[in-house]
Each structure stands twice: as structure tokens, then as C-alpha cells.
Design a protein around this nucleic acid. Structure first.
Lengths: 212, 212
DNA sequence: TGCTGAACCACATTTTGATGTGGGTAGCAA
DNA sequence: TTGCTACCCACATCAAAATGTGGTTCAGCA
């Protein structure tokens, strides 16, 4: 296996050191950089001795620029580096933000070092490892929001909404559903009332958010 | 540990049997149901001897009703059962659809049985396991689509788009940005051209999809 | 049996939106 | 200076959407 160039960005000295020592001993891992802040990292990245990095372990709760913001900067310098986020708390929003920013793995700090090392290899091979509890949260984000009572629209009304989302005009909807333009208007009028909105866009936004 | 009630829905006899025999021998797993189709599953679910199920392994490529459609029906009968999807191919869309439908884990069929069993326990404990390559695809879906040069809209135009997404009318936008109604129209006209769309809704949909 | 609600339709009015033509002013680069 | 672009504005026209009032039919229910 190719030697993996690893970077660590972690401010907690204890964790940082244990990561360093543990990862370093593995013959296939080469620790090319280890710093305590994103700022320090970026400085190193500027230097003429710009280290190569395949995988980076990044603490999400850094002082100064936090991990999430850091991802953007890091990815500008190292667009091909895979980032593994290390986190203490598993807040939904942070997980989501980190993924959106471009992290490709998300691991709890409670995870044993061996697992973290596994994750490094997984990531280096183009995969991704998520801590189970985090993976679950991500999966849940995809799931339809199990709202109360679907929103009270009838079958027909749902068809109309769908047509609106598809970008059809009233005329086209009437045509598609074989009803008159006025009837389409009538339906939409009622839909607005039960949905408590007053424009097509609001309906479409709701529908796209799964709020319906 | 609590005994985990497991169900298997898999049409491939070889895989089905190997899953059955392997899972059954574990003292903490009880195989309460094993069928070859969703239809057969639903029938059993109707019967007076409705089996309890904590975790279900579901093949995504079943004949008849496929796994994705199946998830909906299964979740109606068993809303609290955690579903692990088993898949041969790793098509982005299927992964996404399955998650949206309510699967909480997604595993390649190439995964060794031991790992699958691990996944069962993980899931039963409220976690989720994804095959590395699949997890990566999911992570990538969150990432900002690395488009070429943002789509060509100017700063001002982006403000207008944002306002549209916020549901403002042209008049309100003009008001908010202190420009005339006609100017707003002018901007929108140009936005449509560079975005190659021809209605507000399309712009909003694009914006909401991150395509902009 | 008579009420209710969903779906259907018509007519009318006002507001928005989509598009075109034309014309200003800056700022920036060739 | 010229030319380009972003931004600004006006006027015009037609299409689409928002909203209200009023009416019909049919199925399900008290």
C-alpha cells in the first residue's frame, strides 16, 4: 500500500499527542504535519516546504477559526485532501455543516484509536467512515419528516401541488388533469388556505422541504 | 444484551441461506422471519402471528416490488423497525432514494457476514453502519457541487435571487434594495438568460438545489 | 332525508411576472 | 478614447397568478 501522508490539526495536547504517536508507528502512515490550529496549518501550507497531505484529521472545536470554517480554507489549499472531522459533541447542525463544507468523514473523539486509524485507511482508499451514531443522524436527515397528519391536503390537491412543483402553469395543470383553468384556480385557492400560504413559491418551497 | 429480532427479505437463495445460518447461530439474534419478497413479508405481517422485528435486512433489488418501494410498506406495518439495505450496485440515486424512504443503513453485498452482523448490532443500538464507499457517496452529496465558477451571476444578481427565494415580490425586492421595480425586472431578465431559465420558480428551485 | 365536503366550473378584478425596446452612468481594460 | 460590463431606469404589452362571489353534482353520513 502507498504511504499515506497524514496531517493532524488538534489543539488538545493530550489527544494530539496520542494521535501522533499512535499513527506514526504505523509503517504505512507518514505524519507530514501536526499543528494546533487552522491558522498554523495555513501558514505551513504557504511555506515553500508545503507538505503533501492525503488525509487530514481536523478537530471541529478548535479555538480561533473553528473546524467548519477551517474546512473551506483548507480545501482551497488542498482540494484533494480528504478531511476527517473529529468531534466531541454530536450536534446535528455541526455534522451537517461540516459535510457541506467538504468533510468526508466524521468521527467521535470517543472512538478508539484503532478505529480512527482504520478510518484513515478507508478514507485514503476513497471511502468514508462515520461513527455509528453520527451515521444514524445523517440517515435521519434524509428521512421524510414524519410530520403530524401530512398537512391535510386531499389526493387531488396533492396532484396539483406536484404539478406546481413540476413547474406547470395553471393552464397546463388543467390540461394535464383534464379540468378547467378555473377549477385549477379553485383548488389552488383552497390549498393556499389550508397551507396558510399565499403564493405559488411558498407552496413549492414547502413541498421541496418535505413540509407537505 | 437484549435479544435482537431479525427479519430477512432476500430473494437470492444462496445469500439468504448464508445470512440465515450465520445470523441464527448468534445467541443474541433471533431470526423471526425470513422471506423472499416484500409481498410475502407483508402477508406475514398481516397474519395473527405477526412476528416482532427489531431489525430487517432488505435486499434492494428484489423482483416484484423492489426494496425501495418496499420500505414504505414495511414502515407502515413496522414503523419502529430499523432497516438495513443490502445492495449489489452502488448507484447514487438508489442509495439516496432508500435513505429517503427510511432505510437507516446501507451495506454492499460484498461485505463480509461478520461486518453485516456488526451492522445489525450497531443498528439495534440506535446507530447506523454504511459501507465505506457508500458513506463516501453520501458525504459527497452534501458537499457543495464544485461547479465551474459559481454560475456567472454578479453580486447584485445573487441578492436578487436570494430575495426571490425568500418569497419577495418584485416590488418588495425593489424596496428592499432601494432600486426601482423596473430595475428589478431588468436584473431578473438577465438572470434568466444567464441561468437559462424562464420563470421565477425555476430560479428558486435551482437555488434551493444549490445549483447556483 | 337533508347536510357537508370535495371536486367541478364560470365570471370578474387586481396584482405580478415575463419580455422587449431604448437609454442613462460608472469603472476598468485594451 | 473606445468598448465592455454592471447597474440603473422608463414605457409597453401580454400572460399568469391571486382572490372573491356564486353555482352544480355526487358520495358519505347523521
Amino acid at each position: 500500500m502507498e504511504e499515506i501522508k497524514l496531517a493532524i490539526v488538534e489543539d488538545d495536547a493530550v489527544i494530539k499527542e496520542s494521535l501522533e504517536t499512535f499513527m506514526q508507528v504505523h509503517p504505512s502512515i507518514k505524519l507530514t504535519l501536526s499543528v494546533t490550529s487552522v491558522e498554523a496549518f495555513l501558514e505551513k501550507a504557504q511555506s515553500p516546504l508545503r507538505p503533501k497531505i492525503d488525509v487530514m484529521i481536523l478537530d471541529i472545536g478548535l479555538p480561533g477559526m473553528n473546524g467548519i470554517q477551517g474546512i473551506y480554507h483548507i480545501r482551497q489549499k488542498y482540494p484533494n485532501t480528504d478531511i476527517i472531522m473529529l468531534t466531541t459533541f454530536e450536534e446535528d447542525d455541526k455534522i451537517y455543516d461540516a459535510l457541506c463544507a467538504g468533510a468526508c468523514s466524521y468521527i467521535s473523539k470517543r472512538t478508539p484509536l484503532v478505529k480512527i486509524r482504520e478510518a484513515i485507511f478507508t478514507v485514503a482508499q476513497g471511502g468514508s467512515y462515520m461513527s455509528p451514531s453520527i451515521a444514524r443522524k445523517i440517515a435521519e436527515r434524509f428521512m421524510p419528516k414524519k410530520r403530524q397528519k401530512e398537512s391535510g391536503l386531499s389526493e387531488r390537491q396533492m396532484q396539483i401541488v406536484q404539478a406546481l412543483v413540476d413547474g406547470l402553469s395553471y393552464k397546463m395543470i388543467g390540461n394535464k388533469l383534464n379540468i378547467s383553468l378555473d377549477t385549477v384556480r379553485d383548488h389552488i385557492k383552497r390549498i393556499y388556505r389550508t397551507l396558510e400560504v399565499n403564493s405559488k413559491v411558498e407552496v413549492i418551497k414547502k413541498a421541496m422541504d418535505g413540509d407537505i
